[in-house]
């Protein structure tokens, strides 16, 4: 009974509830029977080797791929809705308001031919911002929050370093104050010192904005520092999930034990 009290005293409505999600590529399994709840403010890490289905899962969650079975219920402003069956127009509206998607390669998430300010401002304009001065002021503010100097606002991302491009992509995604951020290997392809800076930035933003996030990565050190919870995937299935440090420090599944013991101290 006491447990019940705790459940009701916390925010009981999950932000995202995934139920029995499967995606097949012909006879091959993309991901199968994935279920989990994500609560507001939580960061969920998904780890696994290449081909484990973690990227397929992320694509299904973000609406880039249509799953074959299952539900992805998001707590919209109008109440919980299954995003798998909602219309594309509505899903895209979610994608540019409540959701954000940070690609591993910033080139996939940025408009390389558009200035940094235009990249950050696009989502604002997409939801109806029509005041140039305000849009620009918000872009300057966000560039500052991701540690990009204001005088770079009119430069194109092609003139930026890889780390700066990734920070710009994050600013572009977070400017509309989303509630859920999907990240696909956000620190992949960056050298270690740049990764650290990005991790710190992400942690701060997650905390300040109360963001929920789903981070796909193969880097256990990254999830240790960013994720509250961890899901381990292999061959399209979730083999283990739990508290991040519990899964890493006391792995139960054979594959997780192998994964954890195969990396240098994390």
């Amino acid at each position: 009974m006491k447990d019940l009290d705790i459940w009701t005293s916390m925010k009981t409505q999950p932000l995202l509830s995934v139920q029995g999600l499967s995606k097949f590529y012909g006879a091959r399994i993309g991901c199968d029977a994935v279920s989990f709840d994500l609560y507001p403010g939580e960061v969920l890490g998904i780890v696994g080797e290449s081909g484990s289905g973690k990227s397929t899962l992320l694509s299904c969650l973000a609406g880039h791929l249509a799953p074959d079975t299952g539900k992805v219920i998001f707590d919209t402003v109008d109440g919980p809705r299954d995003t798998v069956v909602m219309g594309e127009a509505e899903r895209r509206r979610l994608a540019r308001t409540d959701w954000a998607y940070v690609h591993q390669n910033p080139r996939d998430g940025l408009r390389m031919g558009v200035s940094a300010g235009g990249n950050v401002g696009e989502r604002l304009m997409a939801v109806g911002a029509r005041h140039y001065g305000d849009i620009r002021a918000q872009a300057v503010d966000w560039l500052g929050r991701v540690e990009i100097a204001a005088d770079r606002i009119d430069d194109r991302p092609s003139a930026f370093s890889g780390g700066m491009q990734q920070r710009l992509q994050i600013a572009r995604n977070l400017v509309t104050g989303p509630r859920l951020v999907f990240m696909d290997e956000p620190t992949g392809g960056l050298d270690v010192s740049v990764q650290a800076r990005l991790l710190d930035l992400l942690r701060g933003l997650v905390r300040e904005m109360g963001l929920s996030a789903i981070i796909v990565t193969h880097d256990l050190a990254v999830v240790r520092l960013l994720a509250d919870r961890l899901m381990v995937m292999k061959g399209g299935y979730v083999v283990e999930q739990g508290l991040t440090d519990q899964v890493l420090d006391d792995p139960q599944h054979e594959y997780t034990q192998l994964l954890v013991s195969s990396v240098l101290q994390v």
């Binding site: 558009v114 401002g121 696009e122 997409a126 939801v127």
Partner: peptide, 29 residues
Amino acid sequence: LEPRETETRKMHELEDYGLMHVKLYEDIA
């Protein structure tokens, strides 16, 4: 700003016109 015909048709379908103003924004910037 969007070279893919499939994508521009989708944008018209969904009235996803933020990009049009990005072009004007770039002009002013």
